[in-house]
Amino acid sequence: MHATSALRSAARTPLIRFLGKRSVPSSVDHSPKPHPASPSGNLPDSFATYRAKAQQHGPLGAAGSGAGWIGRRPGASLGPVEPKQGEYFDRDELPQRFHRLPWSQTEIEAIETGGASLFN
């Protein structure tokens, strides 16, 4: 007897068991409600008023006192992009002791062979 044909003919019983009969609620309230963790506890009047107050990586509305929209100005007009004192953009700007160490030939071979070259 072939095991695969025996397995195919067997009835499948799920391992999970549900208690009670399936029931669909007769009425579901789909009206919008504020999120339970909402700071104000109420819904915005419209999407436009929400967007005027919302922030995502900076203000979405006007950028300050009459400066206009951020998207309408070139990036250079927003100011220089220089790190503050004690901040670095790249690891190579740090002192030598924090630089990346070069890979040795043994480490490269170990990675390329999945570690098999270490067990010769």
Rank of each mutant, 00 (worst) to 15 (best):
S9F: 05
Q55P: 00
P25V: 04
A48G: 03
G115F: 11
P83N: 05
A62M: 10
Q56V: 10
W69G: 08
P80G: 13
F89Q: 03
G79V: 02
S117P: 04
Y88H: 09
G86W: 08
A54E: 04
G20E: 05
A52W: 02
T49R: 01
G64I: 02
I70M: 12
F47P: 01
Q85T: 06
T49F: 01
Y88T: 01
A6C: 04
R17H: 13
S117R: 15
V81T: 15
R73I: 15
W69K: 14
S38C: 09
D45R: 13
I16V: 11
P34H: 01
H35D: 11
F119G: 12
P95F: 07
A11I: 14
G68T: 07
P59R: 10
R72M: 14
S38E: 05
L15N: 11
N42L: 05
T4E: 15
G68F: 12
G86F: 09
A3G: 02
G114F: 06
E107T: 09
P74V: 06
S117L: 07
S117C: 11
Q85D: 10
R72L: 15
K33G: 00
S77K: 08
R97V: 11
S104T: 15
G68C: 11
A10F: 07
T106H: 12
A52R: 00
F89D: 02
G79F: 02
A116R: 15
Y50S: 09
E82L: 15
M1R: 03
P36A: 00
E82M: 14
S117H: 12
L7F: 11
H30Y: 10
Y50L: 10
A76P: 03
L101P: 04
I108H: 14
